[in-house]
Nucleic acid binder design. Structure first.
Lengths: 191, 191
DNA sequence: GACAAAGCGGAACGTTGTTCCGTATGGTGG
DNA sequence: CCACCATACGGAACAACGTTCCGCTTTGTC
């Protein structure tokens, strides 16, 4: 019903606003991976090359930014699954690179619970949507790698994702290297 | 080997320092239950009727305070287990009251992981010590209630403690009432 | 009772998330 | 092409946090 006013002169964002929006999403994702989801807003602003005011114009609160990055990364992971299969030499190589993206994303995901501690229902919704979106993507890569005879058949996409997800819990401990363990897990899948 | 110097004039704390130490432990425990482990240091100081400087004299950092409260509450829980059996009318009533203390303690315990995110090994040590100390206490109460014919025999102390512990995850959500669910769990144990 | 040491209170500091407002800029009607 | 103004930007300013510091008070001893 609000669409009646859609014929206005400039209903859509200005060009620089759109640029800053995606710049912020990319910058925040990068900073989260480097310094964790607890990274200061100022650091994200610096990484994106904007002022803090710009962040709060796009994302009213810190939690909103985290959620936006989360959604953005889920979409990116889902999309990458499709293209990696054509870009990489073998399906297994594609799977490895996809899992690497997935691990980047998990940093955000694990911080999401803390950022949304006051909205458990919203968190469940996001979690369900994340599974709907990524399990098929992972399954496609895994299936291709199985078909090509590179990996065993004993594990399905959901199990792999949970396994990788659990390996990445507590990765803020400097003595713990989740990526190394994930690499070993993937190596263990080889036929 | 450090005991060689124990013959000094005043090796032990001054009287007011000892008072403030336990006052702080009690005040922090109370505030943690009321407002969560994220409660500001100033609130704890106010509850104990001291200045913030006094807190930092006793506990160099916030995490140290949380750990101290944790240890204090574990000891209190263990000690209470012994006395409640003689004070309450029936073993089951004693068990119910003990679990109530245990739930108070869980608020601190769940916050501990966040407070110690940089010391995973220390956390594991504390966790193991907590089990060693409290499982026997809980087992005694549970055993007594089973012997008196008040509760079923299907669940052991460790299971009960894990169950209660898991029910108390996410209790910072105002729509979620962990204590109510714990009460139902205990009611369900009745023979 | 006097004196040194131990302890206390709370102002002050540095770092957070968030708000505010003067300034710059992109899109549009002339 | 230009002038206009809503839109958007940058970063100073604010409030709340953990932590540090230091002048004053209290405690225990000779």
């Amino acid at each position: 019903m609000a669409d009646v006013e859609a014929a206005r002169p400039t209903p859509r964002q200005r060009a620089d606003a759109q640029r800053n929006n995606s710049a912020l999403l990319d910058a925040a994702a990068a900073v989260f991976v480097r310094a964790g989801v607890e990274a200061p807003v100022r650091d994200i602003a610096a990484e994106a090359g904007v002022g803090v005011g710009t962040i709060y114009r796009h994302f009213p609160t810190r939690a909103d930014l985290v959620v936006a990055v989360y959604r953005h990364q889920v979409e990116a992971c889902a999309a990458a699954g499709a293209t990696l299969l054509t870009e990489e030499a073998t399906p297994y190589a594609a799977l490895v690179r996809w899992v690497d993206l997935f691990v980047d994303f998990l940093v955000t995901k694990h911080g999401l619970a803390a950022a949304m501690h006051s909205d458990a229902a919203g968190f469940e919704t996001l979690h369900a949507w994340f599974l709907d979106r990524l399990v098929p993507a992972c399954a496609a890569l895994l299936g291709a790698a199985v078909s090509s005879g590179e990996v065993r058949t004993e594990v399905d996409a959901l199990q792999l994702m949970y396994g990788v997800g659990n390996l990445c819990i507590g990765d803020d401990d400097p003595r713990y290297d989740a990526r190394r363990l994930v690499a070993h897990l993937l190596a263990g899948l080889r036929a």
